[in-house]
Design a protein around this nucleic acid. Structure first.
Lengths: 227, 227
DNA sequence: GTCGATAAACTTTTATCGATAATATTATCG
DNA sequence: CGATAATATTATCGATAAAAGTTTATCGAC
């Protein structure tokens, strides 16, 4: 799967290592719990340890990797509790973003893109293309974050969405019922467009809380405590 | 000023560089906008560039430092807009933390500590010891975050509180009226203790939003757009 | 003679260093 | 003003010593 990584003017080895590792982790190519000493990662990436190490430190800050002294770098496993924590946080961050997007009147082009992505997601749903849908769903959420106009908020949400994305790919594409999900997106889209911040807040909040509930149920049913 | 930094069993040079730099930035010893090439920072810290560089990368992830290629490391300035963004985010994160602290019934020892800190803050206020008060106010907020029981949420809030702390130290100890602030703390404390999550949410939310309003006014009055 | 424990030797892996080539910025010159 | 040289700074490398973990060897008890 192709993930759109940050395009940089000048791609240093650190950047390239960071992008490749992050992409591999998010797509599950490097599964949770995977562990390897630094020299191995470095040689696999075809560069010396230094830039790899710096990339790993950044990934550690992102909450994707753990650097265990003398034991190597490890892709941190995602527990059921972790997912719940993330969903809970997103429930308020995304609500805030949606509210601000509505109140402040987001940039026109972002609004248009939200609309487009929303439609495309519907089509993917009809075509039963789950992968495409998941990708578009993710995109939708990121666009709303962007529309908030609060850069830090956007960055924060993006970080957590990475985690959700990973969890979804790695463990369950048994996602929440995409149908009601699509309806939520449409409602949220409308609320933002009409400048109704309060409704936008409510819709975004309950959207994510529903996801949390579904996730909890799923985890319990499957008896999963770790992924 | 002494900041309680993370105590580590094994303090590597990276850890020590990170702690020292962070402390210096938060206390304003390294002012916003301060810029220096890596070798200079390294020699000032009495170590080679490598560990310093790794510490700087972590600080960059924390949003405290900017690594500008060929120009050195820079303590990122805090604009008025930055502060508002942070306050806005905290308004929901802290509200969530307070709610969860109330609902879940936080650990007994944390609750007790909140109480203690609250009282000490009142005393500091009476004694007009603003520095002590600021420290205790900060501590209070961190304890509520801890009481949420959501580790990610706690970490997230702590990161933003660092920024607030820095802004307060660097630019204004003309903080919001500490009196009403103390009242809020008492109310929040009571709500959490009585298990009233909804009230706790409301109090925490408006506490931070009030802070935001005051900050906005202050920034405008002073004509400050950058700190 | 076998088992478990303790200590010594060994292996692995990192933490840190100093060096170097590449590159952006600045200064200089025509 | 544009091209070129000089400078400053980083990005990256390979090496090394130290620390932690692991195996092996040795010893005493049963």
């Amino acid at each position: 799967m192709l993930l759109s990584m940050s395009s940089r003017a000048k791609a240093t080895r650190v950047d390239s290592a960071y992008d490749r590792l992050k992409s591999d982790i998010l797509t599950g190519m490097l599964p949770p719990g995977f562990q390897a000493p630094e020299p191995e990662v470095a040689s696999r990436l075809g560069m010396s340890r230094t830039p790899v190490r710096e990339a790993l430190i950044r990934l550690e800050a992102d909450g994707l990797v753990e650097l265990i002294p003398r034991r190597g770098a490890r892709v941190i496993p995602v527990t059921g509790n972790d997912i719940c924590e993330v969903f809970e946080i997103l429930s308020v961050l995304e609500a805030l973003a949606a509210q601000r997007a509505g109140e402040n009147g987001a940039a026109q082009d972002v609004l248009a893109e939200i609309e487009t992505v929303s439609d495309e997601a519907d089509q993917a749903l009809v075509a039963k293309d789950i992968d495409a849908w998941a990708q578009l769903d993710d995109k939708f959420h990121r666009l709303v974050a962007e529309a908030s106009g609060n850069n830090r908020l956007e960055a924060e949400i993006n970080g957590f969405l990475d985690q959700v994305f990973r969890a979804n790919t790695v463990l369950l594409r048994l996602n929440q019922a995409p149908a009601s999900c699509a309806a939520d997106h449409r409602k949220l889209n409308a609320a933002i467009k009409s400048g109704d911040g309060v409704s936008a807040w409510e819709i975004a909040r309950s959207h994510r809380l529903n996801g949390l509930k579904t996730m909890r149920k799923l985890l319990q049913d499957c008896g999963l405590t770790q992924v």
